[in-house]
Write a protein that binds this DNA or RNA. Structure first.
Lengths: 200, 200
DNA sequence: GCGATATTGTATCAATCGGTACAGAGTTTA
DNA sequence: TAAACTCTGTACCGATTGATACAATATCGC
């Protein structure tokens, strides 16, 4: 009885929100049922693997989003630092200015990391790699590029944690503008020198 | 039948580990029983409030630790930056160089935050406040001190998240040495100027 | 219109959840 | 020694967990 044919693509964002709110263990099938409006039958039809497959699908979806709006722009970096700016925009949007947590980071802090180990690790390796490749295209040396990339990604993750803890998105906003200031969009030589100085 | 009289103080670190590994919802009484070796009877004898009281006690214990080894040293800052260095030492020890997660941060990323809202918020406000007070004693202006404090605390939290995700403590270590480099222990004027430069 | 397929709700399963009750063994106090 | 108190193990509670089975219905290809 498919009244409104539900698309898997429409369900996944809802699933993502449930996992974000309650974590992997706290996201029970009852809660998922409430939020998606889908009965157990439908849920197991779309995700025969049950909860684990749901979470895996969410992680795949997140990966696709970041590939499109974060990693891909970084790959197109032209040396002006524009892609860094675009990335910070995308990230600010994605994390709702600190109101939305990073599901991958949240999974990493519990034993859900062991369940989705490769997906979790890949998320961050791809992010840091894409970022440091862009920085190298901006003229940074290899070691500096990696250090600065790690610095940026950890700063964003930490900002999410502290913002949530204090229930104050301003912490996230301040972190983002601090990162932005490290990479002035105008590409004069000082831009990189400044970031190199703050890198170590 | 009290064979070995268990002390609440001995149980709490074990409880902390269980919560760290599995999160609040994932820390079931069976798992707590397994790890502590205490039956339900004993557990509810020590913590009549059940799981919630166990977690609250753990948070209180963590708060006490940080008060002693992090907040208190910062309060004794003499202008040389020595207390910052001591804090970074203590934090590195506490988080096992990135192998041990921050339970407060982990709680903050799920709905456990709503349950322990004030404890979670206080942990970070006290940390940031103590740190910025120390920075002011080192000569920083109010706004700079707050910005740098937020920067440091978020960097530490982010480093824990990324270290766990990549299963690579080196990320944590690098972040800590980067923070250390921002605050050279030797107190010449350049030290603070440098940190002010990187602050915004 | 007819059969195949896709989607759904309900009922049900064993296992486990957090929590309670309580008797009994040990220790301390009187 | 006797009563009071502290600690512990076991059994048990109703509720909920993730998962399965399956019949019923709607949609689509023909």
């Amino acid at each position: 009885m498919p009244r409104f044919i539900a698309e898997k693509a429409d369900i996944i964002p809802v699933l993502a929100d449930v996992f974000r709110e309650h974590g992997y263990e706290g996201a029970t099938l009852s809660r998922i049922h409430e939020r998606t409006g889908l009965g157990r039958g439908s849920l197991y039809h779309f995700f025969p693997g049950g909860k684990e497959e749901m979470a895996a699908s969410v992680l795949t979806d997140i990966d696709a989003w970041f590939a499109q709006y974060v990693f891909e722009p970084l790959r197109r970096e032209d040396g002006t630092g524009k892609s860094i700016d675009q990335m910070l925009d995308a990230v600010t949007r994605y994390f709702g200015s600190g109101n939305r947590i990073c599901l991958v980071g949240a999974f990493a802090l519990t034993d859900a990391r062991d369940r989705f180990g490769t997906a979790v690790a890949q998320y961050f390796t791809r992010w840091i790699d894409a970022l440091s490749a862009a920085l190298r295209r901006m003229g940074a040396s290899g070691s500096i590029a990696i250090a600065v990339s790690e610095d940026i990604v950890t700063a964003i993750q930490g900002a999410i944690v502290v913002s949530r803890s204090l229930d104050d998105p301003a912490v996230f906003e301040r972190t983002m503008s601090r990162l932005r200031a490290k990479f002035p969009l105008v590409a004069h030589d000082d831009a990189l020198t400044s970031s190199e100085r703050t890198a170590i």
